[in-house]
């Protein structure tokens, strides 16, 4: 009996050789279940995006779950106030890993035109954000485009490496953006040192 190569039919049709990272990422990116956190007018565009006209189901992300326990993608749609920030942070903490955050619209990305005492100047003050979508509010096309960009990004992740080494400590920390927000009242504050990845030894 001669040597059987992987390329010989019909044996090769029964399996596909791939990397574990690739197949895990492929499954993750095509079943992004969003948590629709509609805080203001962006929520309306969010509903239109999930509805039949723009049809987010084409990208595997149509199953909007209203409990954080079943979600992968937190879409912060709209102006986030400091009073709401505690609720948003709790929702993020209750989501199981792996999880991603998207800020929809300028208000949640940077505070937008609300440079005010009540509004958080960017969700990245309190959460690690993966994708920012500009617009006031952004069209559903723009958000779908960012979901595709997020999918490309997820495809480059290394889940097996994270499994072995553990998720880094700084994964749930924001950028500290709150301390250099455009507010003149706090502009004089010094930036904190960002936490660093623990050394290998």
């Amino acid at each position: 009996m001669g040597q059987v190569g992987l390329s010989e039919a019909p044996f090769s049709e029964s399996f596909a050789a791939t990397r574990l990272d690739w197949i895990v990422n492929w499954a993750r990116k095509n079943s992004l279940w969003p948590m629709p956190l509609g805080l203001s007018c962006c929520g309306i565009e969010l509903m239109a995006m999930i509805g039949p006209k723009f049809d987010l189901a084409r990208f595997g992300a149509e199953a909007a779950r209203f409990t954080p326990r079943q979600c992968d993608l937190l879409i912060v749609a709209g102006t986030m106030t400091w009073k709401m920030a505690q609720a948003v942070r709790l929702v993020y903490d209750q989501m199981p890993e792996p999880k991603w955050v998207m800020t929809m619209g300028v208000c949640s990305s940077t505070g937008g035109m609300y440079d005010s005492y009540a509004v958080v100047q960017g969700v990245d003050s309190i959460l690690p954000v993966d994708v920012y979508v500009p617009g006031c509010p952004p069209r559903p096309d723009a958000v779908i485009d960012s979901i595709i960009k997020l999918q490309q990004r997820i495809q480059r992740e290394r889940p097996v490496k994270d499994l072995i080494e553990g998720i880094p400590d700084y994964a749930d920390v924001g950028t500290g953006h709150t301390l250099h927000q455009p507010n003149r009242a706090v502009a004089h504050k010094k930036l904190p040192a960002l936490p660093t990845r623990p050394s290998q030894d």
Binding site: W82, D115, S116, Y117, A118, S125, T178, N183, A185, V186
Partner: peptide
């Protein structure tokens, strides 16, 4: 001030 006093 319109930007707030220690909003965070």
């Amino acid at each position: 001030p319109h930007v707030g006093i220690e909003p965070d």
